[in-house]
Design a protein around this nucleic acid. Structure first.
Length: 578
RNA sequence: GCCAAAGUAGCUCAGUUGGCAGAGCAUCGCAUUCGUAAUGCGACGGUCAUCGGUUCGAGUCCGAUCUUUGGCUCCA
């Protein structure tokens, strides 16, 4: 707990104490661990005989209401280690004793009491429990003591609290909104993708409409990569064990790899990463400094074993397609290449409607491979790129991988949630392991710099984020069906089909709803499918050669000529990098 | 993997102390030819996740497994 907490953080932390206090009253055998505030609420970890479920929340909240109404003061006491030890030992609070042992000798040890509940805690707290205004318990889940799976599993209760009921209501509405946007639900309703039990967990099937969106994204991605000076690669999905021994994956990554398969008495592994293959292409012949930088990109599908409990829709899967690229360059080129990567990443994000971007720069950890001087050059180039592009960033000192420093980018979606996607990572490990070289201007052999980067992360996860960001209502350029032709009666069906053909000739994705339904029903279905344009053709339109245009967001737009409609939609679907 | 909860028609869900598996929507058929968010009638649709056990009898009780959900851990 920091001393410079905001009022909201302090209040949430106090609310955690009040919740613990309520649990103590309801289940006197409860053992307490810690109860901090979090980004949007608080939690408290308990160990108690009773299995907590959401059905217990009403009772806990009622007890909290009592404690708040009793308006106990939060009393801070500074005690000696021996006194606290005795108190917690007397109460059998074994977790508190372990936490006490964490506090360095000589540091102040403080207790906070409110009513009959006393907790080892640095504070600060509110003056009185009565100051807690608006709170709600949200979920219960298991959590390891100290986050270590070798330890005892605690029962964690999550809750949230706000300074006013209005703020709490707004937050609860946001949670509802997030639920409404859930990509797993929208994915089914809009018929975009599925994950089949018969095939296996974490393995994604793209249905025609989801595949359409993905292919639009891929086409855009390729176009922009070619424009930015990249070349495309395609590489195999499996490779011999020796490759993965050389790369180091079998040493450092094997717990994430699918089990090997034996083919013609040779052992093969399905790829968890694309880089070793790209390196093989690099090494296929001798390279000169004249051909650097090489910018090689691949939409490479990889498979990684993820523990069963972590899978989640499209966000966390076992088979996914990285928008991977590797840049091989000279030392002189490093800074410019990194800066281009940063610029490119941000431009791509903006094209998909993400504006707010923050970066995290992770530097050399204790244990690392590679020349410290090269780390220095790499880190400086990353920092310079962020400065030059004016991106807000935080330093994560020592947070880099053992093989190189990196920048991770996070962006916020339409309802303020933060997602990590792009990453730019130096690699001082693989060029060494694979003995990558190029001939310099001096005629000597040199080791190239290698940068891994992904902009969208994985297409599966990115689609999941996009679905939630747009709540399934994709902008025209991404919408799998851009317009539905709606004949008012079946007398107009032929004309609607002809109009659909005309629009398809202009590369628009259109369908005709020729069902014997009333127009209102067809409009309703198109709205629910979040189709951007509904193009209604009745007797009047067919006679006048016009179309009645209804927009998904703005409703009836009146009639226009086909040419005017094409012009309108052409302007709307255009997407260019800034 | 661990803690907890869940799994009934394509979807959302009902199913009483163990006693004939249901509804709405979707789908299909017939009728309706309709002007900016749901036309009417009818039909089809189930190994109640899977396997085993208890019982005269299991959707319901018990066990194991699979999958999902909320977290922990990890991460694109």
């Amino acid at each position: 707990m920091q001393a410079d907490k905001t009022g909201l953080e302090t209040m949430r932390h106090s609310a955690a104490h009040v919740m613990a206090s309520a649990v103590q009253r309801l289940w006197p055998d409860a053992l307490f661990d810690i109860g901090p505030d979090t980004e949007d609420g608080f939690y408290y970890d308990f160990d108690l005989e009773h299995r907590l479920t959401e059905a217990d929340f009403a009772a806990i909240e009622a007890e909290m209401a009592k404690i708040i109404a009793e308006d106990h003061p939060f009393v801070r006491e500074e005690k000696s280690r021996a006194e606290v030890l005795e108190l917690m030992r007397g109460r059998g609070q074994s977790y508190k004793l372990e936490r006490l042992a964490d506090i360095p000798e000589g540091e102040l040890i403080s207790l906070y009491s409110s009513g009959d509940f006393t907790d080892l805690c640095r504070g600060p707290h509110l003056e009185r429990t009565g100051e807690i205004k608006a709170y709600k318990l949200l979920s219960v889940a298991g959590a390891y003591f100290r986050g270590d799976e070798k330890n005892q599993m605690m029962q964690r209760v999550y809750g949230t609290a706000f300074l006013s009921q209005e703020d709490l209501d707004a937050h609860l509405r946001m949670l509802e909104e997030a639920k409404r946007r859930d990509h797993r639900v929208l994915g089914r309703e809009l018929d975009l993708f599925s994950i089949q039990e018969s095939v296996g967990p974490g393995l994604v099937h793209w249905h025609p409409k989801g595949a359409r969106i993905r292919s639009v994204i891929e086409d855009f991605w390729r176009r922009e990569h070619y424009r930015a000076g990249y070349e495309m690669l395609y590489t195999p999905h499996v490779g011999r064990a020796g490759l993965w021994e050389t790369s180091g994956h079998l040493d450092f990554y094997s717990e994430n790899m699918y089990a090997p398969m034996d083919i013609d008495e040779q052992r093969y592994y399905i790829k968890p990463m694309n880089c070793p293959f790209h390196i093989q292409i690099y090494k296929n012949r001798k390279r000169s400094y004249r051909e650097l930088p090489l910018r090689w990109a691949e939409l490479g599908t990889v498979y990684r074993y993820e523990r069963a409990g972590v899978l989640h829709g499209l966000m966390r899967v076992r088979g996914f397609t990285q928008d991977d690229a590797h840049i091989y360059c000279t030392e002189e080129q490093v800074e410019g290449e990194v800066r281009e990567c940063v610029r490119f990443a941000i431009a791509i994000w903006r094209a998909f409607g993400f504006e707010e971007i923050t970066a995290y720069l992770a530097t050399r950890p204790e244990k690392a491979v590679g020349d410290p001087a090269q780390w220095e050059i790499a880190q400086r180039s990353l920092e310079a790129a962020l400065e030059a592009e004016g991106i807000a960033y935080e330093m994560d000192e020592g947070g880099g991988a053992f093989y190189g420093p990196k920048i991770d980018f996070k962006t916020r979606d339409a309802i303020g949630r933060s997602w990590q996607m792009s990453t730019i990572q130096f690699d001082f490990n693989e060029p060494e392991r694979f003995d990558m070289l190029y001939v310099g201007a001096d005629g000597q052999m040199h080791r190239p710099y290698m940068v891994h980067r992904a902009l969208l992360g994985s297409l599966e996860r990115f689609l999941g984020i996009l679905i939630e960001h747009y709540a399934g209502a994709f902008p025209l350029w991404l919408a799998p069906v851009q317009a539905t032709l709606i004949p008012v009666t079946d007398k107009q069906t032929a004309a609607a089909e002809a109009m659909a053909a005309k629009l398809r000739a202009h590369d628009f994705r259109v369908t005709v709803d020729a069902r014997p339904e009333k127009m209102g029903a067809k409009i309703r279905d198109a709205q629910l499918q979040k189709v951007p344009y509904m193009l209604i053709m009745g007797g009047r339109e067919v006679e006048n050669g016009t179309i009645s245009v209804r927009s998904r967001v703005a409703g009836d737009q009146g009639v226009m000529t086909p040419e005017a409609l094409i012009e309108l939609m052409n302007a709307e679907r255009r997407v260019e990098l800034a």
